[in-house]
Design a binder for these strands. Structure first.
Length: 676
DNA sequence: GAGCACTGC
């Protein structure tokens, strides 16, 4: 099948006189950059490109059982509603991100002139702004997936609109299969039909159409402005050096109001390049004008992230050095130039070792086009690719979908809970490796969530309970075991602490202060108990902000921990679990962790190194662990990270006997393996 | 003796 690039630009032209780059003309449909004068809402809605397609869209929607489309997220749901389609139920519109779901709902409610939560509402984790009147419901795709556990046929919905499908998040990919199954089952059971609309920003829709039984495709013209694409003439051995040269080349030539956005791979190189740029810009001739260099990545405190939206002072150029957060999650106006290093840091998964590796790799063509597109949002723009056109041609066309790059344990558990009979052959749009599915099934069997009966894999009662938690299966299992050790309160806290990014704030410049402040919480029992100590202290001062600052605790994430814990506690109560505290008896907590996480265990070898009991992988204690200085004989850990070495992160000291108690069969098998 | 892209339930 011939493959076409999303947004394939026309043929190239050589620009003489540029030492570094050659260029290709505009990649997208030229449009006038003038903003229309303010008009009433109705007129504005009619001006949107999708309005032209309204009639055709509605005709097709009426005739067909299943649809594929592409277009404007705020309008299609309104068209459907106004045309009376799906009025018997609710129209769901899914988004990969919370902020998008919330802000889109706000905009549509405004257009419909109704208060949010009435006709138009949204549902995201920790927040449900809907009512019995809600007909247009914006939600995260993860939320719809979770709802489906209680309602696999999705009977409360008549239409599901899956937006931003091109991003291929794990949740959207699972949803594809779930809505397709629901659609078929409803037809078989003669229920109200479920209509599905897939919206994608790329033109690579063949896959979607094919998957949904060759559904019709509707193309919509975007509102992108033309963007000039430049490539380097020679391959660059050092993309950071190339970025630096290009930034200052542009800075010398372009008007100061033209901002630059540079796509890079991570915090460290961004901070380093930011320092270099600031240094150099101080020593430039006056004719150049000042430069404001701003770093942008997800782990920056929110206040610092907001700086990218502030316009630079007049006569000063804004240069933003960003990770791929600026590809989709953060949209910055006023960008005239995009510099694309062609590299990205992303996760890869090895199903054999079960290890996830975070590595710098080349972007896909689709990603390169996405980056370029960030330059043409208000007006025409320019994109400098810091690699040659030949190198571009060798990039893979699309980013590998997340579902093919991660551990599938929770996905498989979720599908089983939805009543999918044959998970090994589930109709994924892009099939994960069979080894990855198999290794997930094995992991879930070990946890007691699945069992094999006459070649059939079935969900156990324990597995069903595990699936009701929005957690990694091993965390859910640990919670479910906790009443047996009378330490549910502690385990709920620990699991909640582990579910957020990090509650610890570690500014490198204040390292000694951080260590001093943290010393009073450190437990020789490991990182879990240390975190628990911090959380208990936090609760004792009722989350006092000043206390958080003094103790280098991230108060925003701590707030999130509280919300997660409340949610988990609710689920426990619904399962009739007895929630007790073990007080100071933290050994009970460790015993419980050993029983829940025995697959992630490691022991000390005579030579002072560590080896995992599961796959005999050689590992080391991560230097961030409180056990780093010690030599515990036996530990369980939360995860392995493969960077310069293979490190265990978040360790808990356990007794070897506890592990043997937790899974006698498993460990006797492991012993045999070790001997042979 | 390290250093971690980005989402989400």
């Amino acid at each position: 099948m011939p493959h076409h690039d999303p947004y394939r630009p026309p043929a190239k032209k050589f620009k003489p006189g540029s030492a570094f780059f050659h260029h290709k003309p505009a990649m997208l449909l030229p449009k006038k950059g003038n903003n229309p004068p303010p008009t009433p809402m109705e007129v504005q809605r009619k001006r949107l490109p999708i309005y032209q397609a309204k009639h055709q869209l509605l005709t097709q929607l009426r005739q067909l059982p299943c649809e594929t489309g592409s277009g404007k997220t705020t309008q299609i749901p309104q068209y459907l509603y106004e045309a009376g389609i799906g009025r018997q139920g609710v129209i769901a519109i899914t988004q990969p991100r919370r902020v998008a779901a919330i802000s889109l709902a706000g905009r549509v409610a405004e257009e419909k002139r109704t208060p949010l939560g009435k006709l138009v509402g949204y549902t995201v984790r920790f927040e449900d702004v809907t009512s019995s009147e809600t007909k247009l419901k914006f939600m995260t795709d993860g939320m719809l997936l979770r709802e489906a556990i209680g309602d696999p046929l999705m009977l409360r919905y008549t239409v599901v609109v899956l937006d931003e499908a091109h991003e291929r998040t794990m949740h959207t990919d699972v949803l594809f299969g779930v809505v397709k199954t629901a659609q078929r089952r409803r037809r078989e059971l003669s229920k109200v039909p479920l209509k599905v609309i897939v919206m994608s920003a790329t033109m690579d829709v063949d896959l979607f159409s094919e998957y949904f039984n060759k559904s019709p495709v509707l193309y919509l013209e975007g509102r992108q402005h033309p963007i000039q694409i430049y490539y380097t003439k020679q391959p660059q051995s050092d993309y950071l050096q190339a970025a630096l040269i290009t930034i200052f080349q542009i800075h010398q030539e372009a008007p100061a109001s033209h901002d630059i956005l540079v796509f890079m791979t991570g915090q460290e190189e961004i901070e380093a390049l930011a320092r270099t740029c600031r240094d150099i810009s101080k020593h430039l001739p006056d004719s150049c004008g000042p430069m404001l260099v701003i770093a942008l990545y997800a782990s920056l405190p929110p206040a610092q992230q907001l700086r990218v939206f502030q316009p630079a002072p007049k006569g000063c150029r804004k240069v933003i050095l960003s990770t791929n957060i600026a590809e989709t999650s953060v949209t910055i106006s006023g960008i005239k130039y995009v510099l694309d290093t062609g590299m990205v840091k992303s996760k890869r998964f090895n199903p054999e070792s079960g290890l996830e590796i975070l590595a710098v790799q080349r972007v896909s063509k689709a990603q390169a086009w996405q980056r370029a597109g960030r330059a043409g949002r208000e007006d025409s723009g320019l994109c400098y690719r810091l690699y040659t056109e030949a190198e571009f041609d060798k990039l893979i066309p699309m980013t590998v979908p997340e579902i093919q790059r991660c551990n599938l344990a929770s996905v498989i558990l979720h599908l089983m809970a939805l009543g999918i009979p044959d998970v090994m052959h589930f109709d994924f749009m892009s099939k994960p490796l069979p080894e990855a599915i198999h290794s997930a099934v094995v992991q879930l069997e070990l946890l007691g969530a699945l069992e094999k009966k006459e070649q059939q894999v079935t969900l156990t009662a324990l597995g069903k309970k595990m699936a009701s938690f929005p957690l990694e299966p091993r965390y859910a299992k640990t919670i479910l075991l906790s009443p047996g050790f009378s330490c549910s309160e502690e385990v709920l806290s620990i699991v909640s602490l582990l579910s957020v990014d990090t509650v610890l704030y570690n500014p490198p410049a204040r390292r000694d202060e951080v260590l001093a402040a943290r010393r009073k919480f450190i437990s020789s029992e490991g990182d879990h108990i240390t975190l628990l100590n911090i959380y208990r202290a936090f609760k004792k001062v009722s989350g006092n902000k000043e206390w958080c600052r003094e103790n280098f605790v991230n108060s925003r994430n701590m707030g999130l921990v509280k919300a997660v814990q409340a949610q988990l506690r609710d689920i426990c109560l619904k399962l009739n679990m007895k929630l007790e505290s073990c007080g100071s008896d933290t050994a009970s907590v460790r015993r419980c962790l050993a029983h829940g996480m025995f697959v992630n265990a490691a022991e000390l070898r005579p030579d002072g190194s560590y080896v995992t009991l599961d796959s005999q992988q050689s590992v080391a204690i991560h230097p961030s662990s409180v056990l780093f200085q010690g030599k515990p004989a036996c530990v369980v850990f939360n995860e392995l990270v493969h960077t310069s070495r293979c490190y265990m992160r978040d360790l808990c000291l356990v007794d070897a006997e506890w592990l043997a108690d937790a899974a006698p069969d498993y460990f006797s098998r492991k012993m045999r393996h070790a001997k042979s």
